[in-house]
Amino acid sequence: MTETGKTTEKRRVLDVAAGAGYRVEAAPGLVTEPRLLAEALGRVLKLGRDSERRVAVVTDSNVGPLYAGRVAAALEGLAHGAHAGTITIPAGEPSKTPAVLVRVLEDLAALRLTRSDAVIALGGGVVGDLAGLAAALYMRGIECLQIPTSLLAMVDSSVGGKTAVDLEAGKNLMGVFSQPVGVLVDPEVLKTLPVREVSCGWGEIIKYAGIDEAVRPLVRRELLGGSGEAGVPLPGLDLICAAIDVKRRIVAADEKESGCRKLLNYGHTVGHAVETASRYRLSHGAAVGIGMHVLMKALDAAGALEPGMLGELEALLAAAGLPVGIPAALHDDPALDFSPEALLALARHDKKSAADGVSLIIPTAPGRAEIRRVSWRTLEDMIRRGL
């Protein structure tokens, strides 16, 4: 780990210097082993026999049956009545809406949570974003502990304090920055994920390889190392923590995304447009992969990339089970529009956009990228060349 991270056997602790400051704890069994889970919940949420704090668990219909009961039992074991209740939303991006957000807020009120109580976001990126926003809004803000159960949420969305829901115009347009009180990462839960979700998480990890020279060789080794095992691999704890380390360092330097934090949006401007155009039939990670590929293909065609960079991205995406372009089944669907004009219109709703253009993350060398302001005409040209 870096100098501000601490390492013990099979356990990593990374400090995030944002908001009031908090820790990401990562270890096998942190969620799946009752003793470790109880210890972590007590430590982070300050729960004990004399505590009167109550905690609501927000989860979804996929994750809830697997882990919500364990979390509830751990809370009750720490203090009687500590588990205020479990709120379950339907799994998937369609739940990430203002209407579902309001329903969760009403449920928190029905559970009679106070300003001294807390929320646990137990799930993937949708749950983490929505529950984090609900906690930030409820009574003007209560604590939220993130327990990510998807690969994407572990390496990206659970850290950094971005909370949001989608509007019809685009992704994540309604939200606030609100840092969690802590993040608990257990790689053992990844074993229950379907392949599609593992691939989705790899999309964000490959993004880190594009912006950080230290992460790139780790990603190449795990995806292209030729272990001989068939299928999409699960990343090891070292790679998961390396990705988190990149994000927590960038977030510490730029919490509200006024500068270098924009680097974390590599592939996202076009990727969010593609994801929305697909009506969320593409996973977020797949859309980000396509967004990165569109940019690299356009830059390669213009002679602005070092030799081999486009080929490496394509090899990484393929090894992760991700498409390099719009899948034919979606591209040929007459109900969907992936034209450059349609994607540009969606990109104009990007949070980083302005009247004259958008901040785009441009790869400049293997493992390096820069923030560059481009006009809408330039972006449209890049989309057209890169599709």
Rank of each mutant, 00 (worst) to 15 (best):
M1T: 02
T2H: 07
T2S: 11
E3Y: 02
K6N: 09
K10R: 14
G21L: 12
E25S: 13
E25F: 02
L30D: 13
P34E: 14
V55Q: 07
D60R: 09
V63C: 14
A72G: 12
A82E: 04
H83W: 09
A84C: 04
A84W: 13
G85M: 01
I87L: 07
I89K: 06
I89Y: 14
A91S: 03
P94Q: 01
V100E: 11
V102F: 07
D117G: 01
M139E: 08
I142K: 06
L152T: 00
M154T: 00
A164E: 06
D166F: 08
A169M: 04
A169I: 10
N172M: 12
M174K: 11
F177W: 13
G182Y: 01
P187C: 15
E188D: 12
L193M: 05
P194A: 15
S199E: 14
K207Q: 12
K207E: 15
Y208D: 15
A209K: 05
V215Q: 14
R216Y: 04
R216L: 15
P217G: 15
V219T: 11
R220N: 10
G225T: 14
A242S: 13
R249P: 10
A252P: 05
D254C: 12
K256V: 03
T269K: 07
G271C: 14
V274N: 07
T276S: 03
A277Y: 07
S283K: 03
H284Q: 07
I290W: 00
G291T: 09
V294P: 01
A315Q: 09
A315H: 01
L317F: 01
G321N: 02
G325H: 09
I326A: 11
I326E: 06
P327T: 15
H331I: 13
L336S: 06
L336R: 02
S339Y: 11
L343W: 05
L344R: 00
A345I: 02
H349M: 11
A355G: 12
L360S: 09
I361C: 02
I362D: 12
P363V: 03
P366L: 09
G367E: 12
A369M: 06
R372H: 03
R373N: 05
D381K: 05
R384T: 06
R385T: 05
